[in-house]
Structure formats: structure tokens, C-alpha cells
Design a protein around this nucleic acid. Sequence first.
RNA 1: GGAGGAGUAGCGAAGAGGCUAAACGCGGCGGACUGUAAAUCCGCUCCUUCGGGUUCAUAGGUUCGAAUCCUAUCUCCUCCA
Length: 421
Amino acid sequence: MAQKKNIIDELEWRDAINQVTDEDALRKLTADKKISLYCGTDPTGDSLHVGHLIPFMMLKRFQLAGHHPVIVIGGGTGAIGDPSGRKDERQLQSMDQVKKNEDALTAQMVKLFGTENFSIVNNYDWLSKISLLEFLRDYGKLFNVNTMLNKEVVASRLENGISFTEFTYQILQSVDFLTLYRDHGVQLQIGGADQWGNITAGIDLIHKIEGPEAPVYGLTIPLMLKADGTKFGKTAGGAVWLDPKKTSPYEFYQFWLNTDDRDVVRYLKYFTFLDEDQINALAEQVKTDPGKRAAQKALAAEVTKFVHGEQAVEQAQHISDALFSGNLKDLTAEEIEQGFKGVPSMEVPNETENIIPWLVDTTKIEPSRRQAREDVKNGAIYVNGDRQNDLDYEIDPSASFDGKFVIIRRGKKKYFLARVK
RNA sequence: GGAGGAGUAGCGAAGAGGCUAAACGCGGCGGACUGUAAAUCCGCUCCUUCGGGUUCAUAGGUUCGAAUCCUAUCUCCUCCA
């Protein structure tokens, strides 16, 4: 079935391909043998986020089809800064920070790809060994400045200015591809749509050095846009991280669950390993019974499983049920910690207090007594899951959750967690 | 350097001596409906111990009474040099 398909056809069905350098040749190559392919990640942060999943899903599909993915951690290039997709110059990071980020990212990648039939390399290992004179003589000579200037990434920056440092980024990335081709037999580089210029620069370099017949290819992934035009991967709280300490599995699950109907099928194709039949069935349900959100639930479960594991999915579902049904009673302390990870929390003394000053002074949930009274009167305030509209209600922090927490909900889904001291 | 205009709540914008804690729109916050959606409808949107208190660039002044009139200061805009 789906798995029998050629990987390229499979990717096409999933709308996962933006541009390919030589589609027919690549289709034949991947059908005939197992290849090595790579994608680079610059260590600009201390955790991967859902944006990183875009190229990684692609690598994973190749891996599942028996090919060998290589991830290049840009310890070298990350020290320079990729101008792609940016309006202005990047702030250079300290080498120390780069190193820390590398370690954190490596650990996360191993979680996603395992250690079998997968490699992680760091371009610092080769880029740092090139001397300035070597760089200029061996590589600089092969790059035509006119060509470099014409790359969209550079051209778009010319008006506001671009430093020489960032200008040379495409040369470094080209050296990466060349090195991987020589030392690891890597024949394909993948990347986001904005990487096309950098990828083709690498192919050109290989062709110049290794001969025009060198079988190397490039493939880019379409830009992930949301139907409402905003950027994929951002929530009100910022980026959605893969590190469970930064974004809890519950929040992660919720991120996917909240996918717009118009985007969900596209995301199922791209971010899950469900096959064509399963996805078609879900797509049908989006049309016939959108309120059920079967597709969103499947998407959230699948992606959460891939990143955090089966158990995290069950927990996320349990927390979601409790929070959105308003029935908090059977949550465990651990689930509360997780479900309320991204929620404002505060410490409160274990003393009974009237609800109004408690909301305003003790917890700072409400900005003023006026507002607090209004919300209580309107039935906007829930204490431990129960609507509380009595202005004289006395909050007793020791009353529930073993006297550890008081959970306040304001409005439909705004939660606050008060930890009892 | 000269001439004019403008500064009002998170933003936009009315108000030109008392009826103004300040219309209206947006945004924000609630509620109803719903699919943890969209759209729609409704309420609230300076603080308060509900007596009142503090607001209309800032500081003074006139007046029984000022966002509204006067003076100075600051900031912004337009036109002329």
C-alpha cells in the first residue's frame, strides 16, 4: 500500500515537496538503492520546536523507507548566522551558548530518530579546521559573487544591508554538502523552501569540484502556512517546543488539537505516519461531522506520540478531558503540575479568605475589586471546577487536592493555579 | 528663525463653562450559543471600604462650578525661511 510506493511519490501525495532539482533521477535513485540524505539545523536555541519538525518529518519518512538520514548540527554555521528568512542581521551568539544548544538539540534528535541508521554530525568539526587562506583559495574561487548576490536570500537583504559574514553563509553550507558527499556519501539535501538557494549553491560546488555528473540532489519543503495567514508553530504563549520542560506534552497536544479545519488534513498528511486510507477517512469526517474533530484528535495524538510517546498522549487526553469538562476532581497532583505548566501560578498562604480580596490581593488574578465582583456575579469564576457566584464565598485552600492547590478558572478556559504554601 | 494647528481612557475619535467618569468605533474582559471553531447576540471596560475618590499633555490661574476660558512650559504636526 502506501509503504510500497516510491518515497518520492509518497511525498508528493503528502504535498511535502516544494521544489526538487531532478525529480525523475531522484525517483529512480531512491527506488534503486538506499541513499543518505541530510538536513542542517543551526543551534540557535536550546530546544527544537514544532518548526523543526517540518524537515525532520521528511527525514523520518526517508528513514522509515530504509534510507539513512544525517542531521548536521550547525556548530560552525550557527556561529555565523543564516540570513534566510530574516529581514535583518542576526545577533551573534557566544560560542559557549552554541555549544550548550548543540548538546540539548542532539539529545532531542536521538529521541526522534533513535541511533540505528541515523547520524548526527557537527559542521564545526570541519568548518573550524579551514584556514582563511584555504577558504579563499579552495572555495572562494569557485563562487561567483554575481550568482551569490542573485540568490533571493541575499537580494532581499541588499536594501537594508547584509554583513560579509552572513553573505558567506551559503559558501559554508555548500562546504557542508560537499564534505558530507565525500565523507558520508550523502546525495540529497533537504530543507525549507527558503533553503533552495543554499542547497543549489552546494550542488553547484560539488559539480565544480567532483564533476558535473556527481549524483547529488536537493529538495525543499513547502512553506507551512496556516489558513488564517499567520505563521505555523506559534501560539499566544510563543513557540511550541519539543522540550517537555518548556512546553508540556499537554500543551503540545492542545496545540495540534486546536488546528483549524482548513489546515487539519494538510497537517495529517505532513506530520503523521497515517496512511492514505486513514487520512482519507478522517478527511471525510471533517466534511460530514466537523464538530467531532476526529481529524484534530488523530493529529494531536499522532504527533504527540511521535515526540513524547504513547503514555504522554494518554495523559494529555486525560488532562484535556478534565479541564474542558470542568471536572477536575480526579486529576492527580502530577497531572495538575503538567496540565497547568503553562498556566499562571502563584503561591498562597493556607488561610481562609473572602473570594474578592483573595482574587485581587492574594493571587492577583483580578486587577481590581470592581472587576472581581463583576466576574463573580457573572459566573465567570470557577473554584476547583465549580462555578462560584457568591460574593461572600470564603476560599479555603486546604479544602481540595490534599490542600496542595486551588485551581481557579476565569471565563471559558483561562486557568490559574494557586499553590498552597 | 517666522506663521498656524493639535495633545481626551489601551487605540481611534466626539465633547467647546454645569445635564460629562466623559458619546461613538475598535480592541480587551465576561456571558449565551457552539466544536476547546467561526459567525452572531448580550453585558462590562478609572478606582472604591459604594459614602465617595482621582482623571481629559504638565504647572499655575479665572469662576459658585473647567476636558472646555486665561497664562506659562513640554511634545507633535503643517506651512514659510
